[in-house]
Design a protein around this nucleic acid. Structure first.
Length: 240
DNA sequence: CCCTGATTCGC
DNA sequence: GCGAATCAGG
């Protein structure tokens, strides 16, 4: 399958959200995990913590670290690491690391569960999970050190709307109407009559409105705890 | 074994 | 540019 602009866009988004290559491959369909990784690299997407990379040649001289195997040593090695010995953590901190690995946007409207924060609602008794703090890439959920609430839970929608108020039934936001100022959160499935985009005003710097940013960028859950099937925009992947 | 991402290299 | 094969760590 070809890498259309749409698919590339999805790849970027999902990759940015911390989805694994396998998950992305499954979500996109028609591509392998390797294809996703390969494409991500060619796109220059940020590398993510990989198991295979800790190994580094400490000295300037090319040193073959592999100790066994009938592997012929390469005649030369290209550019040994320019920063071999960061004396401090500094270098690490600088590294482009998508700090929190957000993942799994939950497209399906989950009406219940959400508490109503409006009115006099103070912070619910005890946020039991201080650790789970999602900070959108780019710092989309900024909170003062003083007042911090666990934003892991996507902002509870004021109310559940299928897409947008009645007016939009007449004019849903179509692909052609997308621009960088309106939310590109897809609703429904491409190709179907009611497929359209959120169309709200974007959260500046993000492709989605604030509400959908809350869905798109969430703290990564332990893999055990996220079994809900493919968690994606566009109402979830098609079941073939 | 499983998983992961990175890299290589023939196409 | 693409992605299977391969590598290598968890």
């Amino acid at each position: 399958m070809a890498w259309t602009d749409e698919r590339i866009e999805q790849l970027k988004t999902l990759w940015g959200q911390g989805m694994t290559a396998s998950q992305i491959a499954e979500a996109l369909g028609g591509v392998s995990r390797n294809a996703v990784i390969g494409k991500a690299h060619r796109l220059g997407l940020e590398a993510r913590p990989s198991p295979v990379r800790a190994n580094e040649v400490p000295t300037v001289a090319p040193v073959e670290t592999r100790s066994d195997g009938p592997v012929e040593a390469p005649p030369f090695v290209t550019a040994p690491d320019p920063t071999p010995e960061p004396p401090t953590i500094e270098a690490r901190a600088e590294a482009p690391r998508p700090a929190p690995r957000p993942a799994a946007p939950a497209p399906a409207p989950a009406p219940a569960a959400a508490a109503e924060p409006a009115a006099s609602a103070t912070a619910p008794a005890a946020p039991p999970q201080p650790v789970m703090r999602s900070v959108g890439p780019g710092g989309f959920v900024r909170q003062s050190p003083g007042e911090q609430q666990p934003p892991s839970q996507p902002a509870p929608p004021r109310r559940m709307v299928p897409a947008r108020p009645s007016a939009d039934m007449a004019g849903k936001t179509s692909l052609l109407e997308l621009n960088d100022k309106i939310c590109k959160w897809p609703l429904g499935h491409p190709g179907e009559p009611d497929f359209h985009f959120c169309g709200q005003q974007v959260n500046p710097g993000f492709p989605y409105c604030v509400e959908h940013c809350g869905l798109a960028y969430q703290a990564q859950l332990p893999r055990r705890d996220r079994r809900p099937p493919p968690p994606l925009p566009f109402g979830g992947p098609r079941v073939r």
